[in-house]
């Protein structure tokens, strides 16, 4: 065969250049900056700096408020991921069974997707406002002294509720399209093989949704880690007493409010490593059980 190769043509590189440029400018450069900054001790005005090796890291990791934030992040992201996946799956399964008015129903369920996290946070903030918030009064109407400004658990409940509500719609869309991708005849064959709908769901439908579930799990954990920033900032701002401070929110607080650039950079580097490890674990141990 005749060799037709454009061996030294620069064209392919030109085509990928914009993407590479974006990655370099918006990811590699800031990430490199963060790593560099994390080794520096700087005064609040950025006038002088000193190279301090790993002191920022040591200060960060062996710090009660960081450990508290890490613990809250773990609980928060686990609950947000599990709840938003579970609720979305339940809604998708039910919506998939609806025949009349199906599209209206689906559209309504997808609506929350169009709302930005800070807006969702603001809405939540209004709903839990002690003066005019319906949710606030509703929670108190059971005789329980609900106050998210005072009680840590209540504050956690508010941010988790809003974060889950915001995320359910995205998950719903993916689960629904996943369900619709299951061939009808396979479901029918299962109907003839297995009488119990619950058992059918866990033995046929759920395993066939595994690729969707895995994908959503990865994106939802990322969402809980990073994107919920907007929700926390517009509702509790990490209060009371740092009880609802996630790792990302703490990076922001220490860096921009506390003007501790070095410490906040060290935290973001650690956070990056945590997410990296989590992603590796997910792909290593969970993806293996996924049948595409």
């Amino acid at each position: 065969m005749k060799r037709v190769q454009f061996e030294h043509s620069p064209i392919p590189y030109l085509f990928v250049a914009p993407q590479l440029l974006i990655i370099a400018i918006f990811f590699l450069w800031p990430a490199g900056q963060a790593v560099y900054q994390s080794f520096l001790l700087e005064d609040a005005f950025g006038l002088s700096s000193q190279f301090v090796w790993f002191r920022n890291y040591a200060d960060t990791i062996f710090n009660d408020s960081w450990l508290q934030a890490a613990w809250f992040t773990a609980i928060f992201s686990t609950l947000v991921t599990l709840l938003s996946l579970g609720l979305a799956l339940l809604l998708a399964v039910k919506a998939n069974e609806v025949i009349r008015g199906a599209s209206t129903y689906k559209t309504l369920l997808m609506w929350a997707y169009a709302i930005a996290p800070p807006v969702a946070g603001l809405m939540g903030n209004l709903m839990f406002n002690p003066l005019i918030g319906d949710m606030y009064h509703f929670m108190n109407s059971f005789g329980y002294d609900f106050d998210h400004k005072l009680h840590e658990v209540d504050a956690g409940f508010v941010v988790i509720l809003i974060s889950v509500w915001k995320q359910v719609s995205v998950n719903f869309i993916f689960f629904l399209s996943g369900l619709q991708g299951i061939p009808k005849s396979v479901t029918e064959a299962a109907t003839m093989d297995c009488k119990s709908p619950t058992r059918r769901f866990w033995t046929i439908t759920f395993p066939l949704l595994a690729p969707t579930t895995f994908f959503l799990m990865v994106t939802n954990i990322t969402y809980a880690f990073f994107e919920t920033f907007g929700i926390i900032d517009t509702t509790t701002q990490g209060a009371p007493g740092g009880a609802t401070t996630t790792l990302v929110y703490k990076v922001f607080q220490d860096g921009f409010r506390g003007a501790d650039i070095g410490g906040s950079s060290a935290q973001s580097v650690v956070l990056m490593l945590v997410v990296l490890v989590l992603t590796v674990i997910q792909f290593r141990f969970i993806e293996r059980k996924v049948h595409y």
């Binding site: 061939p183 005849s185 396979v186 064959a189 299962a190 066939l208 595994a210 049948h291």
Partner: peptide, 9 residues
């Protein structure tokens, strides 16, 4: 079934 409808997993 026409398209076999085997359980792919």
């Amino acid at each position: 079934f026409q398209n076999y409808a085997l359980y792919p997993h």
